[in-house]
């Protein structure tokens, strides 16, 4: 016989006009190796088929199951019930658009972030499928990969007090994502162009070093090192910046 688990789950479905936001309590028996994903699936199958929550990969790779587990932003699939007390509270991630119950739309937020910051590889070279990919030294590739491990679950955004009071701030996910292009030798943007995106109160100079992001990152990304790196590099770029014409003058030549 496993423990009896009590889950207090936030229920509200904005698309169903008659529901009111509130908490609903479910009880179930803990099974070996149970995580929040399994617990929620069982609740949906055995108690209430209308319960909304997101899961895709179940292996902490897709980033869809971010939620507040006892107030802390966590991935449902990576959080085992054995590490939780007998009574647990589940809330959807704050700041993102609520789809219903525990399901939120992080995709729109991240898409807007990418569009707004130009978070893709900027290159003038046309893609040619007939030639071999350019080689990159292993050290650079590993550094880029470290930033690229982000699954955009939104936990760092929900954990950042700054985003809660300044919704234009791009947060650790945004800065980490742009750090990846700062490191990539294939990206042809100049320091001044990177600075235009990152060098403001909505970018790296909005970060207050509260480290809610790093302490709650389910992927254990070295966010503090990334933020410090971007901060130092953008400060150097800002101090060396000479105005608009710099954009073309400093552009990396390849």
């Amino acid at each position: 016989m496993g423990r009896k688990l009590t889950l207090d789950i936030f229920r509200y479905n904005p698309s169903a006009g008659w529901t009111k936001p509130g908490m609903q309590t479910f009880e179930l028996e803990e099974t070996p190796g149970m995580n929040v994903f399994i617990a929620l699936t069982r609740i949906r199958e055995e108690h209430d088929p209308s319960l909304l929550f997101d899961f895709v990969c179940r292996t902490a790779l897709c980033g869809s199951c971010g939620m507040l587990i006892n107030g802390k932003p966590r991935l449902g699939c990576k959080t085992f019930t054995r590490d939780l007390p007998a009574r647990t509270t589940l809330f959807p991630l704050p700041l993102f658009k609520l789809i219903g119950d525990l399901s939120v739309d992080t995709g729109t937020w991240f898409r807007l972030l990418a569009l707004r910051t130009g978070a893709w590889l900027h290159t003038s070279r046309a893609f040619a499928h007939s030639i071999l990919e350019e080689r990159m030294d292993n050290e650079t590739a590993l550094k880029i990969f470290e930033a690229d491990r982000c699954i955009e679950c939104g936990c760092c955004i929900a954990a950042c007090a700054k985003v809660h009071v300044q919704d234009e701030f791009i947060g650790a996910a945004g800065i980490n994502r742009l750090a990846r292009f700062l490191l990539d030798p294939r990206d042809e943007r100049s320091e001044a162009q990177h600075y235009e995106v990152l060098g403001s109160e909505d970018g790296i100079f909005g970060c207050m070093g509260l480290m809610g992001c790093m302490d709650n990152c389910p992927k254990d990304l070295p966010l503090r090192d990334q933020l410090a790196y971007v901060r130092r590099r953008m400060t150097a770029a800002g101090l060396a910046w000479g105005g608009k014409e710099d954009g073309s003058r400093n552009r990396k030549t390849k």
Binding site: L68, G71, K72, A159, C160, A161, V165, L210, G212
Partner: peptide
């Protein structure tokens, strides 16, 4: 410029710190 303006912003900061019981956010 970092000081939260207005009651709602202050409440937001304390709530985020409180829900996560996060030392560094409380510290600030």
């Amino acid at each position: 410029r970092r000081i939260p303006t207005g009651f709602r912003e202050h409440r937001s900061v304390w709530r985020v710190a409180g829900m996560m019981r996060h030392t560094d956010t409380y510290g600030w």
